[in-house]
Design a protein around this nucleic acid. Sequence first.
RNA 1: GGCUCCAUGGUCAAGCGGUCAAGACACCGCCCUUUCACGGCGGUAACCCGGGUUCGAUUCCCGGUGGAGUCACCA
Length: 549
Amino acid sequence: MDYNKLANLLFPQIKKTPEDYEAIYPPRNLPEGAKVTRLGPSPTGFIHLGNLYGAFADERLAHQSNGVFFLRIEDTDDKREVQGAVPMLINALHHFGVHFDEGATIEGETGNYGPYYQSKRGDIYQCFAKHLVSKGMAYPCFLTEEEIAEIRNEQESKKLNPGIYGTWANHRDLTFEEVVERISSGQPYVIRFRSNGSLENHFTVIDGIRGELTMPENDQDVVILKKTGIPTYHFAHVVDDHLMRTTHVIRGEEWLSSLPIHVALFHALEWPLPTYCHSTVLMKMDGETKRKLSKRKDPELSLEYYKQEGYHPYAVREYLLTILNSNFEEFRLANPTASIDEFEFTTDKMSNSGTLFDLDKLNDISKEVLAKLSAEEIFFFLLQWAKVYQPGLAELMAGKEEQMLRILSIDRGGNKPRKDLIYCRQIFHFISYFFDDHFMVEDDYPKEVSLKDTKEILNRYIQVYDEADNQEAWFEKIRTITADLGYAVKPKDFKKNPDQYKGHVGHVSNVIRLAITGRTNSPDLWEIQQIMGLQQVRGRIAQAFQDIG
RNA sequence: GGCUCCAUGGUCAAGCGGUCAAGACACCGCCCUUUCACGGCGGUAACCCGGGUUCGAUUCCCGGUGGAGUCACCA
């Protein structure tokens, strides 16, 4: 068989040679040790935390080594493509602080190693497919779906491994004439890789995350070009990552089992292997068992979910980094204010067992992150969020910037900042009592205080309340009311002799707190009232009288 | 089922042959305190099982078990 003849029959329109492409895409001129990484999403319109997890690893690796991080759109499956998915993807990644140096952008493409859409690289893939055919390492296969199903059935009944390989690959050695005949009669075909590997033989690669990996060789004649002429992932990955000069391929461990295919392809094309880094998948608790995060089943793990709830992008970043690199937390503890960029990220510190997504941890990190921001930053962040997700709240905030800043400044800064702000939706609820339209009595009045005393406390309080009092003077008045009504001014006295008092000053001030905020828990009441102003304070007390009858 | 990966408290995880087996989150208690939050102190809680190798195994090897992933003209 003259393989050159076959190659020209199959790809008459392909004139360029592999050497031409090597010249068009020469090795990158980068400093020693620079890493080239890429994100290769398929434009399905759905990105989740797992994708972001990988993207951070790519981004850190490239940028801390003065390398290149690019975005390649893997749109070889037209069935899955969703309109407008690419801008959405890019925006979502930008939102969380992932920026690319090269590749697909919202405006178009940038960089010298494009096109960055696999759908535009048809000629390139065909050229290398042609090359493999001409060397007898790939061949046209006319097997129909039914024929393949038959083969599979027979393999199953004989308990053999399924697939097209070895003697099952019965279009491997079609004669040139047979091929011509089938093509001219219009039979569709795919191009398959002619594997000379065997499951008996094993090979070893060094994985950037897992270390030494030993796997059996690939023995399958995998499809490299579909009948449409579009490459499969396997072939596109090998061709693209070689031509785009990727040095580190970071991907989920679901790719581990197809690694033998990729290695075989790299060998066949006589190209050096990139460093593979197979990361763990993010897991989720599903009833009693762990399982991989799923796009279908876990919409709440969508990146969109975190935007909707109003998690700060920094918080999500910090969280992901803590599960990405086991020593990041240690670094953060030692350097509370350092930028993430100062942390040296390494693949060998990446976990290699499944990581369970932990919302408690995210929330905790989010509190820490927000506690370090200024009131202005939080205000701006809230406003941006509200504009998109709660337009009513955005309107409410619009004229109240000064008041909002005062609210957000309560116990902010200093050595012991409050840490009770987590995400926008939660924050709005947390401060909602400042706004009459959102005010609600959410808790019960303290049971230690009788209804009669409750009224008496409120009554006396509103008579003596003076907005001009400083915190000390203000609280002294509450102490007076406390003592007059037979409650302990010092909580400790009450604890020591519970029989001698009706309750203590905490109970009394909580009556007032409840009337003002509708809750038994709040930041400092004096400050809250200073922000509210006399009129609103009086209004709340009046309303409290109504409520309790 | 074949192949592959993985296995330390509830969760995330240090650990690389000798440790009272770190730390963080969560949980519980105490202190601070007019509530909450913050902060401080303390506590409960772990090396999947069985064989080796070794003076000694959480750590190395083998075998189970368990979990996960993958077996497409999807990525």
